Simulated scan of single mutants.
Amino acid sequence: MDPTLAMCAALVDGAELSSFVGGQFDVGAVVAAIRPEAKDGFLLDEVPWKHFPLGYRVREAVHLLHTGGSPVGTGTGVMGCMCADDMQAAAVLAVPFLIRIAADTRHPHRADALPEVSCPARARHFGIASRGQLLLHRSEIRYDDLYDDYGVEVTGYPAGWSVAAARAAITADTALLQPLLDDPAPAIRIHAAYALATATDHEHVVRAAFRTRLAVEPDPVVRAALVLATGEATRTHPHPPTTAWIREQWHDPTQAPKVRLAAAIGWLCLTDEPTPDDLRATVDHLATDERADAMEALP
């Protein structure tokens, strides 16, 4: 039996989740213990991949990406598919390495690696219709609550542990991700914002970086991504002035339509206020099929 599945079986039999905190199956503790030298040098053998379901596949995918192998099927496709199939734990181990590939401007697969960085940092929610859940992003996961907002992965592993660990890994490497907001490629800028939106941002450092980039960003779709990223970060770390600023963006007729739509979505997710008539009118006017197609570039 897979070692982590043995842990999950023990939980089913009544073991306390807290008894595994900080141990070999706690993905947050495992990622936090990876030495900086191992991350920078891609010393993959120092990472206990085998402790997590299909970890061997994630290790091989990281190795292939790092050495320039094809990202299709054997590289980022592995991590993306595992997260889509609700198996995030092992993918979390790849996050520090994916960030370093994305930050390397000479790497041939940096554009493939970056979108995968934040996959395990978000639980997959299907059929969500609530604006309160659209940008669901809890910064703290209770170790003693197996059935929290994130529930469990298909293996039985606590999904909240994976989400929290991935966000912690991204937070630890914000200094590598922030420069990507100024990358020449719009797709890199978009996915950098999407990843940074999951970082812990008590001091508003990340959101300040979004605002700084927004002041000079020429691409309306990237501007929309920056507004949505600001909204997601603010849902985790409430800041009334930022909420008010986002409302100003969808009110502002000088803003690009894509930016106004993104601001309307972001503002709705940050407030419990009834939807105002002028917001409904704005969305009715701006939400065209053509604009929706253009915004498909947003994660």
Rank of each mutant, 00 (worst) to 15 (best):
T243P: 07
A244K: 15
A244N: 04
A244T: 15
W245F: 00
R247C: 09
R247L: 01
R247Y: 00
Q249G: 02
W250C: 09
H251V: 11
D252L: 15
P253W: 05
P253Y: 05
T254R: 10
T254P: 03
T254M: 08
T254D: 14
A256Y: 10
A256M: 09
A256D: 15
A256T: 02
V259A: 03
L261M: 10
A262V: 15
A262G: 13
A262M: 14
A262L: 14
A263P: 08
A263I: 03
G266W: 01
W267V: 06
W267S: 08
L268M: 09
L268T: 10
C269E: 05
C269L: 03
T271G: 01
T271K: 10
D272N: 11
D272A: 04
E273F: 01
T275Q: 07
T275N: 02
P276A: 14
D277W: 06
L279S: 09
L279H: 04
L279Q: 07
R280D: 02
R280C: 07
A281P: 01
A281H: 07
A281Q: 10
T282F: 00
T282P: 00
V283P: 09
D284T: 09
D284Y: 06
D284E: 06
A287M: 09
T288D: 07
T288I: 12
D289I: 11
E290H: 11
R291G: 12
R291V: 13
R291H: 15
R291F: 07
A292E: 02
A292G: 13
M295E: 08
E296R: 11
E296V: 12
E296Y: 08
A297M: 07
